[in-house]
Structures are given as C-alpha cells and as structure tokens.
Computed example of a mutant assay.
Amino acid sequence: MRIVTMRRLVAAAIVVASIAIVVVVWERTVRPDPLAVVEPTTAELQSFATTTVFFGHQSVGANVLEGLAALDGVDAAGIRIIESTDAGSVAPGTVAHAYIGVNGAPQSKLDAFVELMDSGMAEAVDFALLKLCYVDIDAHTDVAAVLAAYTDTIAGLQARHPETTFLYATVPLATARDLKATVKSWLGRDAGMGPEDNVARQQFNAALREQFADTGLLFDIAAVESGMDQSASARTHNGADYYVLDDSFAADPGHLNADGARAAAAELVRTIDAARSGT
C-alpha cells in the first residue's frame, strides 16, 4: 500500500512539474537581443528644458525620473528634477513631481491630482500628467469604469486650465511569470502579476491609444516597456492579446531597471517635445 501511494505521489509530482514547465515555456519568451534604449536628441532635450512639467506618479514613475536624470545631456540642457507640490517652486526647465494617491486605489490618485492642479499647480506648469500604476489595473478591475474616470478627469482639468497641456499615460505592465511565480500563483500568491492581469492592462492601454495616440498627448510607457516600437509580439491568454514588461527592461516583475528607466524617460521627453511643437 505504501509503495502504491508513493508511486502515485511521484506520478502526481511529475505531472505538476510538467505542467509548470509547459506554462513557463509558453508564458516566457526570451528575446534574442535586449531592447535598445533610444535616447532623445540634443534638440529634443533643449526643447524639453524650456518647459515646466508636473508628473504625478508612484514607484514606476520614480523609475522614470531616475532614468531622466541619467540621460546623456540632461545636465547640459539645464533640466532640474524636484519633488514638490508647491507651485511657487516650479521654474522653466523644472520637472516637479510627487507621489500621488494610494497604489491600488486609482480614484484616490485622480482626486489628489485634481486637488493639486486646481489649487494652483496647473497655472505654474506647461505640461502635467498623472500616470496610474500596474497595481491599479488587474483582472478584477472594472477597466471601463477606471478608463472613464481617468479620461474624464484629465478632460475636465484641460477644460478648466486651457493654458496647461494635460497628457495621458498608459498603465505600466508586469513581466511574464517565471517558474517560481507560476508556482506561487497556484498557491494564491503573486496576485495581480499574471497574464490575466496584463490582459486587463492591455484593454485599458488599447483604449487610450485608440482615443489619444494620434493627438500627440499620450505618454505610452507600456509600449516602451514591452518593446512594441521594436516589433514585440503580442501574447494570448484565453483568446485575448496582451503585452508584458520585457525582461531586458525589468528590475523585478513590475519595475524598471536602469535601461528601462532611461528608455521610458526618453519617451517622455519625446512626447512632450512633440506636444509642444504640435507634431
């Protein structure tokens, strides 16, 4: 009896391990070459340096600002990065930023951003944007409701503060699960980091692209993270396409390493430069 039971346990373990390997091989696709970091031109940096910007964010936003500080030519262009919600502290060539709201509660971020903009910050800057985080959108999110709240909030601010240009931002992504994360997900851990969660983020991001990609007002951080501009292939989960944070830009399952941070910062510079010039 003990021998039979042991054989069954071993067989079950082999089946589980085989499934895990299949899942991981399907989920993680290793890019043959790492994503390239395309830095902004000197002209783009010089243009960026003549603007004032407010950036509301949480941790991935902090990665972007670290990347901005590390870009070649930032110091020479005279770009300053400060953490401040004081409108009086913002001068030309300044990127002011602050940690806005609570992760996992997107409405708290929208409310805090509106309060800050309406209390004087909008009049102090040329450009302003609020980026939600990957933890704000997952498989349990009412994506349509968050999308409507986000776009309505930005549109309302734009109407009240026409001299300021408000940008939109896609939601960052999570990496594909590796074997350890896959096993954790079977145990009820690693919530919000699976393919179904990136599917929800893709729905949010695709809707933003449809509405704003042609306006020049979209900071598409998710496209940078996934390498969409470098021919990244979409994955499929239950018939729905989605993208992931590429391993070559990832410090962990949800945050950017130095290269990813610089790539995202470069895209922010280009977005603002294009919006400023109307191209």
Rank of each mutant, 00 (worst) to 15 (best):
A223W: 01
Q203H: 15
L208H: 13
Q203T: 13
V199A: 03
Q202N: 07
E210I: 11
R201W: 01
Q203N: 15
N205W: 11
G216W: 12
A207F: 07
Q211V: 13
Q203I: 04
Q203D: 14
V199M: 02
I221Q: 02
A223L: 04
N205S: 03
G194R: 15
V199F: 04
A207V: 00
F219G: 06
T215A: 12
Q203Y: 11
P195R: 10
G194C: 11
D214S: 06
F219M: 01
A223C: 07
L217S: 11
G194S: 15
L218P: 05
A223H: 04
R209V: 07
N198I: 09
R209F: 12
E196M: 12
F219A: 02
L208K: 04
L208R: 07
D220S: 12
P195C: 03
N205R: 06
N198F: 12
I221N: 00
R201S: 07
P195Y: 13
A222Y: 06
N205E: 00
Q202G: 00
F219C: 01
Q203R: 14
D197E: 03
L208D: 00
A213H: 07
R209M: 08
E210G: 08
Q202T: 15
F204D: 05
D214H: 05
A206T: 15
I221C: 09
L217M: 05
F212Q: 04
V199G: 02
D220Q: 12
Q202Y: 14
Q202C: 05
L217H: 03
R201A: 01
I221T: 15
G216D: 02
N198M: 06
E196N: 02
G216Q: 08
L218D: 02
D197N: 02
A213M: 10
R201F: 07
L218A: 06
P195L: 09
D197G: 04
D220A: 14
R201C: 07
N198L: 00
L208E: 06
F212R: 13
T215L: 05
A200P: 01
Q203K: 13
L208C: 02
Q202K: 12
D220E: 04
A222Q: 03
I221D: 14
Q202R: 09
D220P: 04
L218W: 01
P195W: 12
E210V: 00
R201Y: 00
R201Q: 06
D197W: 13
P195S: 14
A222S: 15
F219R: 08
D220H: 00
D214P: 11
F219T: 00
L218I: 05
E210L: 01
A223P: 07
G194D: 13
Q211K: 13
D220C: 01
Q211F: 01
T215G: 05
N205C: 09
A207P: 06
